[in-house]
């Protein structure tokens, strides 16, 4: 039987869709909008505090998983949407989408390990 990458990628797509649906709005409010809008103090996002959270082994692991599933969710949905737009060169689309997600996954691992 031919092996397919579909279950793996679809699993990452679904996991990423669910995790991002729960977390991204609040996380992006905290990171990008809360301080300029006066909801949080700049101290809440100080280097020391953020480093302390992210560089903790659990922080690194969680953030790696979170970035990874976010990227693969975006990659898979972009691939299917490109197909929906009538662009039928799925091989190239797949290579670009999953290539970017794969590269981002590796970079996330490297950056988080070097932290």
């Amino acid at each position: 039987m031919a092996r397919s990458n579909k279950p793996i990628v679809w699993g990452l797509f679904a996991a990423g869709g669910t995790v991002t649906a729960f977390f991204v709005p609040a996380l992006m409010v905290v990171l990008g909008l809360a301080v300029p809008f006066g909801l949080l103090s700049p101290n809440d996002l100080s280097f020391d505090r953020v480093y302390g959270i992210v560089a903790h082994p659990l922080g690194r692991l969680i953030l790696f998983g979170f970035i990874t599933v976010s990227l693969w969710h975006a990659a898979h949905r972009t691939r299917t949407t490109v197909h929906d737009l009538g662009i039928s060169n799925d091989g190239i689309t797949m290579f670009i989408c999953y290539g970017v997600a794969g590269l981002g996954t590796v970079l996330a691992a490297v950056f988080l390990l070097l932290l």
Binding site: Y51, L63, A74, T78, F111
Partner: peptide, 22 residues
Amino acid sequence: EATCLFIGLHALVLLVGVYRLS
């Protein structure tokens, strides 16, 4: 379907953030 581009952009922001943190 287009929301996924912004989920991807958010992942990129986090990626850059971790890099800058390092």
